[in-house]
Design a protein around this nucleic acid. Structure first.
Length: 421
RNA sequence: GGAGAGGUGUCCGAGUUGGUUGAAGGAGCACGAUUGGAAAUCGUGUGUACCCUUUACGGGGUACCGAGGGUUCGAAUCCCUCCCUCUCCGCCA
């Protein structure tokens, strides 16, 4: 959410930045409502001032034993108009708030301008595409042949886009989770196990609601939502708080399952593990001071990249262009991993700087050394999507025989096993 | 799920027969005095959001005592709903 007064003062900047996202928005309506709001506030506050003054008068009269009933009629009328204006104001505020919640974040000046993902810019890459002396298979073939992932039985238990991991498949997934958590906690991230079900306020704080309700699994009966990413609970840990500057920067890491309805993506990535309703992810979240977030984003990105470097898998980093940027983000880098079986790059991590956009929604503030209060800046990134890392290993570490070599850095989790057969 | 107690400022803690209470008192913190320095002591200050006003410093106003409604000229104080915490019971991993 952007600040209303900031929007009013910088309306041209906001319009320009929003257009660059190719996001259409009716700012005139907002401006009109904001104007009404100010007028009504002025009016109602003046009436309240009169009412308060009158009440004190009555109080004084009663205390000195005098009759105050001659004021009753006037005061009642005053009070009635305050009440009706208060209702008008509340409705107006609600309406403005709804509009504000649907304005996307301001894109960072360093974000390339473009229309869609084809305009994203590759900033760097690591390693090279591996060369195979056979035709590499897609991960689902390898996995099903080895019996380490079962899609059909999973859809029997739930529905399509779910999976069951078996034996060394389950073990590989767990090894990856541990490997990632150990690396990040060693870098100073505090490990968190958050709730997986959260309420509407929490979902609104990070921007999943109200715009993306369709994407969420909801427990109607209890009015709770399954988290689509650990970003939601982690970022909201300090919602409604004013942190002291000494507490910053805050670094959190959490492994959680993530749940997404994937509405509107029918027919996309239907096979295999790429797009599931439930998947595992290790998520990094930072809460930092407002002048440090740009540098923190670069550091966060490197932390995520390191996992793939250690696994020795080829990837590239792209900067999302203005048209491809997420609603809440000011700047985003995607890490795209190379998948030889599918012969393409696939997003495996998304690292974003939200600046004060989420902090304003969730009211996460900090007090600087002079005692002045600022909104914090929040960032997050996958470190990494575990399911996609799993399938990247399958495709990059497959052998001619259809086996999977276990990466060196994961060897410790498998004792003497070098190959999953 | 049943019975009871409670939710007040950075913290502790008054205030529930409604009336200058943004809110006593204490602690903490900041600044100043005292000191060679420190402790102790004394003095002053110490919330947030929004509106109006001012070039600025500042000044004025409104709201906020878990959240949302209601009663009233007026509510931290009375009534209703919800949320949360604690104790006991039941159930259960």
């Amino acid at each position: 959410m952007l600040d209303l007064n900031f929007i009013l003062k910088n309306i041209n900047l906001i319009k320009e930045k929003t257009e660059k996202r190719h996001y259409s928005y009716d700012f005139d309506k907002l401006l009109q409502l904001a104007e009404n709001r100010k007028n009504i506030i002025k009016e109602v506050e003046e009436l309240k001032w009169k009412r308060n003054k009158g009440s004190k008068e009555i109080s004084q009269l009663i205390k000195t034993g005098k009759d105050a009933s001659f004021l009753n009629k006037e005061m009642r009328e005053l009070s009635d108009s305050v009440k009706s204006l208060d209702i008008t104001l509340k409705n107006l505020n609600d309406e403005i708030n709804k509009l504000l919640l649907n304005i996307p974040n301001i894109i960072d000046d360093t974000v390339p301008i473009g229309v869609n993902e084809t305009d994203n810019i590759v900033v760097r890459s690591y390693g090279e595409k591996p060369v195979f002396n056979f035709q590499p298979k897609p991960h689902w073939e390898i996995a099903e042949n080895l019996g380490i992932v079962d899609f059909n039985r999973a859809s029997k238990l739930s529905k399509s886009r779910f999976s069951i991991y078996f034996g060394n498949g389950a073990k590989l997934e767990r090894a990856l989770i541990n490997f990632m958590l150990e690396l990040h906690t060693a870098k100073g991230y505090v490990e968190i196990i958050p709730p997986l079900l959260v309420n509407e306020t929490t979902m609104t704080g990070t921007g999943q609601l109200p715009k993306f309700e369709e994407e969420l699994f909801k427990c109607e009966r209890d009015n709770l939502y399954l988290i689509p990413t650990a970003e939601v609970p982690l970022t909201n840990i300090h919602s409604g708080e004013i942190l002291s500057i000494e507490k910053l920067p805050i670094y959190y890491v959490a492994y959680t399952p993530c749940f997404r309805r994937e509405a509107g993506s029918y027919g996309k990535d239907v096979r295999g593990l790429i797009r599931q309703h439930q998947f595992n992810k290790v998520e990094l979240v930072k809460i930092v001071s407002d002048e440090s977030s740009s540098a923190e984003l670069e550091a966060l990105l490197l932390n995520a990249e390191e996992i793939l470097k250690l696994l020795n898998i080829h990837y590239r980093v792209v900067t999302l262009c203005s048209g491809d940027l997420g609603f809440s983000s000011s700047k985003t880098y995607d890490i795209e991993v190379w998948l030889p079986g599918l012969n393409c790059y696939k997003e495996i991590s998304s690292c974003s700087n939200f600046k004060d956009f989420q902090a304003r929604r969730a009211s996460i503030k900090y007090r600087d050394k002079k005692g002045k209060i600022h909104f914090a800046h929040t960032l997050n990134g996958s470190g990494l999507a575990v399911g996609r890392t799993f399938l990247a290993i399958l495709e990059n570490y497959q052998t001619k025989e259809g086996y999977i070599r276990i990466p060196d850095v994961l060897q410790g989790y498998f004792k003497d096993l070098q190959l999953i057969k």
